[in-house]
Write a protein that binds this DNA or RNA. Structure first.
Lengths: 192, 192
DNA sequence: TTTAAATTTAGACACTTGTATAAGCAACAA
DNA sequence: TTGTTGCTTATACAAGTGTCTAAATTTAAA
C-alpha cells in the first residue's frame, strides 16, 4: 500500500480512500474481480488513474484496504478483561459478528467469484493474518509442548475454517454451535 | 486450463506441455512470479503466444500445471493396504516425500517470492486441495460428531500446515517428529 | 498415398497496466 | 501577501494481456 495508514489521514485523503473503497465494494457486488479494472474504478469514482496510484499499488491493494475497513469493527484494542485462555473465544466471537454483519456483501461476492479464486482468497487470508496477529499476542501456548508459531497458526486457521463453514458455505450455526465446533476441532482443553 | 488433462495427450502435446512447464520451473528459480510474463515464457520456449493460449488460460494456469506435474509423485492411485484410520499418515508421508524431493525448487522460489504472495499461495492451495480430495475419500470421520466436509478440510489444512512449517519455514523435522506434531494438533485419537 | 480433421502459427486488435514528468492547485507560515 | 511545500492531475509511454482471424502445417485414418 502506497498510502501510510498508521499516520492519521487528512480530511481529503480520508474522502479519497472512502470513495475508492466504496466503488470497489459496489463493483464487488456486481461482477467478478477479474473484470474490475483500475480504469473502471477511476471512471466511477471520478478520479484520474494517477490519483489511484498515489494511494494503492494495484487493485489487490485496494481490495485489501476494503478488508481493512471491515476489520476495524473487530475493535482489537478494546480489551475484554478475561483470562488469557478465554481470549480465543472472545476474539472468535468478534470475528463472528463482523462476518455476520457483512453476510450480504459476502453473498454477493460469492455470486461472481469462485470460492477458491483470488478474491475470496484475499479476504480469507486477510482475516486469517489478523486473527493470527491477535492470537499470538494474547494466548499462552506454553502447555502444548509445540512450537508457538505453529500452534498460533493452527488456531487461527481453525477459527477461519469454522467461519468459512458458517458464513461462506452457508451452514447456519449460532455462536454456541460454533464454539462446539471449535472445541472439538482444536481439542481446546489441551491448551486453554 | 484449456487443455484437457484427463484424456491422454498426443506425443506433440506432451512435448509442448513439457517445454512450457520446464520454462516456468526455470523462471521460478530466477525471478519473482510477477516479473514472469507470457511473452517471456514463449520467447524462451520458442512458441508463439497463440500456442500458449491453446493450452493455458494464463500464467497462473501454467503454474498450476507445474504443481500438477510435481503432484504426480504422490501416486494417489497406488493404494497401500492399511486400515482407513491409518491413511492420513500414509498420505502425509507421501506428501512429505514430495515436498522433500522438491526442497531445492521451494528454496529458490522463496528467494524471489513472498511467503504470502500469489505464487506460494497457489502452491499451498494446490496441495491442500489435493490432500482434501484424498482424505475425503479415504477416512471415516463418523466418530467425530462433526460435519464430514468440515473435518476433512481441517485435517488437510493441518497436514499442509505442518509441511509448510517444515519445508517452507525451514524447521527441519523427520517424519517421526512430524507425526508427533500432527498427533498433537489434530488430537488424532478422537477420530483415527 | 491421399484426404479430411485438427493444431499451430502469424499478425492484428482493443484493451489494461504501472511509471514518469511537468503543470496546476491548495494549505499554511512568515 | 507571498512564497514554500506537498498533493493532485493531464498526458504520454513502453510494455503486457487475451481474443480473433485466416493461412500453414501436422496428424491420423482410409
Amino acid at each position: 500500500m502506497k498510502y501510510d495508514l498508521t499516520k492519521k489521514p487528512t480530511r481529503g485523503a480520508q474522502r479519497t480512500l472512502g470513495l475508492f473503497s466504496n466503488t470497489m465494494f459496489e463493483l464487488l457486488s456486481e461482477e467478478p474481480f477479474e473484470k474490475i479494472s483500475v480504469n473502471k474504478i477511476c471512471d466511477i469514482s471520478n478520479f484520474p488513474r494517477a490519483t489511484f496510484y498515489n494511494y494503492f499499488d494495484d487493485k489487490f491493494d485496494l481490495v485489501d484496504y476494503c478488508w481493512y475497513v471491515i476489520a476495524q469493527d473487530i475493535e482489537v484494542d478494546k480489551v475484554t478483561k478475561v483470562k488469557s485462555n478465554q481470549s480465543l473465544i472472545v476474539y472468535f466471537d468478534r470475528l463472528y459478528d463482523v462476518f455476520k454483519s457483512n453476510q450480504h456483501l459476502l453473498d454477493n461476492i460469492l455470486q461472481y467469484n469462485d470460492f477458491s479464486g483470488q478474491l475470496v482468497n484475499s479476504f480469507i487470508n486477510y482475516f486469517k493474518d489478523k486473527m493470527q496477529e491477535i492470537l499470538s499476542k494474547t494466548i499462552d501456548y506454553s502447555k502444548t509442548g509445540l512450537p508457538v508459531e505453529l500452534i498460533a497458526d493452527h488456531c487461527s486457521e481453525t477459527v477461519i475454517l469454522v467461519l468459512k463453514w458458517i458464513f461462506l458455505k452457508h451452514h447456519d450455526a449460532n455462536k454456541q454451535l460454533a464454539h462446539e465446533y471449535l472445541q472439538k476441532l482444536l481439542n481446546l482443553d489441551q491448551f486453554i
